[in-house]
Design a binder for these strands. Structure first.
Lengths: 134, 134
DNA sequence: GTCCATGCAAACGATTTGCATGCGT
DNA sequence: ACGCATGCAAATCGTTTGCATGGAC
């Protein structure tokens, strides 16, 4: 993925912190703010935690990334992509993406229609224990 | 609902703060910690915010209540009941419960089975705009 | 050269902790 | 009477803010 042009397409200036943040979120799939800071700091020492926070906020507001709130833990972030569901392991915290069946979306739409509720986004998290941690 | 015996059934001592916290969560359906503290304080002035935090934590750990993390906002709490989905209004923050179709659970179970992922709980939040706020 | 992004440190808000006292059992 | 629950204040943690400097365009 070309993070450079991704940033430009959202009218954001291309800076080192931004490229590295995007790259890391993309590589990891799902990552918390602390981990972004810690990992990038190793190769780019002058990075400030405040910069990570500011950029995460900016990217979230414009829809470049999505926040995944997690019960009892700090939120993680992922690049915006088609709706999907998350398997969240209570043990190791790992998150795995699963495709969402069209069927599923239709079920939600039908319920929403009855209530005249206008859906803007879905958040389907399934908590449990992953294979590794069993 | 008899909060008194509900507490006893979870081996918790019956105290004024606990009864009032449970009652309020039950009445409101979904409520944030601040609001619990503010509302109860009006009729029970000596309540401490720390007590609310401690009890919410205790009740969450033993499964009496459930935490609903919400994107960009403080989490809300509800009494534990059968799995259901939440319509969360981005405007007013209101949460509405919707029955979850058995069908839906089966879909998740099927996906989980393939991955050998052991499901412990579902979190289905649908964000959007409720009828009132349109 | 202009304006926005960064880095730092201070400020802030939410949550947790320690400890003496009170209350449920 | 014992032990857990409470209330208070201090401590801690996560996040935001203000401001001077640097870098992207």
């Amino acid at each position: 993925m070309n993070y450079n042009s991704l940033l430009k397409s959202y009218n954001l200036k291309v800076t080192q912190p931004r490229i590295k943040i995007l790259q890391l979120i993309d590589q990891r799939g799902h990552i918390a703010i602390d981990d972004i800071y810690n990992e990038i700091s190793q190769i780019y020492e002058k990075l400030s935690l405040a910069t990570v926070y500011k950029n995460i906020l900016t990217m979230r507001n414009i829809g470049l990334i999505i926040e995944i709130p997690i019960v009892g833990k700090k939120p993680k972030y992922e690049l915006t992509k088609n709706s999907h569901l998350h398997f969240i392991c209570k043990e190791c915290g790992a998150i795995e993406d699963k495709e969402i069946i069209d069927n599923l979306k239709d079920i939600f739409k039908t319920i929403a229609l009855k209530d005249q509720f206008i859906i803007s986004s879905l958040q389907n998290n399934i908590y449990g224990v992953c294979l590794k941690c069993q």
